[in-house]
């Protein structure tokens, strides 16, 4: 369980995290979403005692990180896969981390096996590819068999196979009852991997809900329409209250928002217009995310209330 309570972090005049509160529950993967510079990494660094909070607190199983005696037994974290000495072997890297928390030396071999690095364990970490470095970082996070895990951008720069591997891993860890927080700006990935989302922008909370609820509440469903009479249909639909965007590369296509397929069909029938296609487009996490964070960016001097409000109007 991770609890962030009224967390604020300022670096000089810059406010990186602004009165942020949320909870991450065990037994599920929680995605931590936000554009670059929105405060995800800062929140994790403060939660893990690396940076000091300006105000508020972060609790891990009810305890601030700096008060944990052997923290790796409670919390595992991957913040930056490059935090290794390039001339030290992967095995030696894990050995010193294990020793620091009085973990049995056998755990090193166990986690090396778990992340698939056994064969290269004695090679120097500086020769590792990014994917191998990420696996080493995850091995370090798993060393203490912790109940809480934080991964900062774990799929960054990975090939599709690596991305799938991480997804299965975090879902497996959550299924074992662990608390798992995964930050990412790869939103499509989060839609698949995370069942719950904490979305932030400019250091403030934008949404905290299940992934499905987030998409439903924040995005308009659009319908893709094909017709040989696009100009007439567009005018008729606009009069019926829908908004229309032409489809790139298709003169006969219209992207319609604010009207259900049924409504579009009725409008077309009433005007005697021909339809060639009527395809509902499910709202994507990307759209929802861009709408919400874009809204947040607009309110440069806005307070937290405005930022937290889901916009009713469109872009």
């Amino acid at each position: 369980m991770i609890e962030i309570r009224g967390l604020t972090k300022r670096y000089g005049p810059t406010t990186a995290v602004d009165d942020l509160s949320f909870r991450v529950e065990p037994g599920r993967v929680t995605g931590f979403l936000g554009p670059n510079g929105s405060g995800k990494s800062t929140t994790m660094r403060v939660a893990l005692g690396l940076d000091r909070a300006t105000a508020g607190e972060a609790l891990l199983d009810g305890t601030p990180y700096r008060d944990l005696r052997y923290p790796l037994r409670t919390v595992g974290a991957l913040l930056d896969a490059r935090w290794v000495h390039p001339n030290r072997s992967a095995r030696a890297h894990l050995r010193w981390i294990a020793a620091s928390n009085a973990l049995p030396a056998g755990r090193v071999d166990t986690v090396l096996e778990q992340v698939g690095l056994t064969a290269v364990a004695d090679r120097r970490a500086g020769a590792f590819s990014l994917g191998m470095s990420q696996r080493l970082g995850i091995a370090a996070a798993l060393l203490g068999d912790p109940g809480t895990l934080l991964f900062d951008e774990p799929v960054n720069g990975l090939d599709p196979e690596g991305v799938r591997w991480i997804r299965r891993l975090v879902q497996g860890l959550a299924a074992e009852g662990r608390t798992v927080l995964v930050s990412s700006h790869l939103l499509s990935e989060m839609a698949v991997a995370a069942s719950h989302l904490v979305v932030i922008g400019r250091g403030r909370l934008i949404a905290e809900s299940t992934t499905a609820e987030f998409i439903d509440s924040a995005a308009d469903d659009t319908v893709l329409v094909r017709t040989p009479q696009p100009v007439l249909l567009a005018e008729a639909l606009r009069r019926a209250g829908a908004s229309i965007v032409p489809v790139d590369g298709d003169d006969l296509g219209l992207s319609v928002t604010g009207a259900t397929p049924e409504k579009i069909g009725e409008v077309a029938a009433a005007r005697g217009l021909v339809l060639h296609g009527l395809t509902p487009q499910h709202a994507s996490l990307e759209n929802a995310f861009l709408r919400l964070t874009g809204h947040d960016v607009e309110y440069v001097s806005g307070g937290p209330d405005q930022a937290a409000a889901v916009p009713a109007a469109g872009r």
Binding site: L48, G49, L50, Y65, R66, L68, P71, L72, A77, L79, D80, R82, W83, V84, H85, P86, I97, S100, N101, A140
Partner: peptide, 17 residues
Amino acid sequence: TEYATGTIGTTFLAVPD
């Protein structure tokens, strides 16, 4: 070297005191 490679972060994660 720990500050240059970033392992100081790993060190302070392992031993926050």
